[in-house]
Design a protein around this nucleic acid. Structure first.
Lengths: 110, 110
DNA sequence: TTTTATTATCGTAATATTACGATTAAAGTT
DNA sequence: AACTTTAATCGTAATATTACGATAATAAAA
């Protein structure tokens, strides 16, 4: 359904899940790659690179912005997008520390 | 809606998004933490640690399994869960390489 | 064999997500 | 001022997700 119950979980897990959820769609990964590819802000031009309508891309951009992974500032007639450095590093660190905490299973049942 | 259109994106992005999506809920992060905490398989006991019903937890487990992040083998009366080592490392590598590809924005518009 | 324990699945309701076209909003351009 | 460009938002339909209780399925235990 989309009931949340997130209040029952620890904050770090909620934050990590929020970042991961934002990464959980190919279009948003593609948007991030465009932003990453050139290490500069992108003012427009994102819609043309994706097989989606302008409104849909705008919606995906909003989700990335809401999750904190990107920033978007108005720059005249266009809007200027780029990675949100602080949160990007934060997400990286949270994910990394979870992934790194894995050590091979020492039982053989799986 | 949940229209997909994933066929229009590159495979690596689709795979990465699939892993990220599975990580996109606090309950599933919590489940993974339980599996990571003890470096052994868990036969049962996962439901008791979460503030969710058995059926809901089972559903989350299924999603983690479908995404490939965990394995679950039948072990007598219980089911034995653990991290899927190969895919775990694959997800880690895909995420890591995306995050690492970021270098600070050299323009000042954002 | 009946009972018990454990997990998956079904049915379902509520909410969220994804996608689009149409419209709006805001700032340049003519 | 009227027009154009760019991006957000609205309205919407279709599908997915999340949650639960109830039921099924399976295997161990009695």
């Amino acid at each position: 359904m989309g009931l949340s119950k997130t209040e029952e979980f620890v904050q770090a897990d909620i934050t990590l899940a929020k970042y991961a959820k934002a990464l959980g769609h190919p279009a948003r990964i593609a948007i991030l790659r465009i932003l990453l590819e050139r290490n500069t802000c992108i003012c427009g031009d994102i819609v043309e690179e994706l097989p989606l309508s302008q409104s849909t891309v705008s919606q995906h951009l909003k989700e990335l912005k809401d999750a904190g992974l990107i920033k978007g500032d108005i720059e005249g007639k266009k809007v200027c997008y780029c990675i949100n450095e602080n949160n990007w590093r934060h997400a990286q660190q949270l994910l990394q520390s979870m992934f790194v905490s894995y050590t091979s299973c020492n039982t053989s049942c799986c």
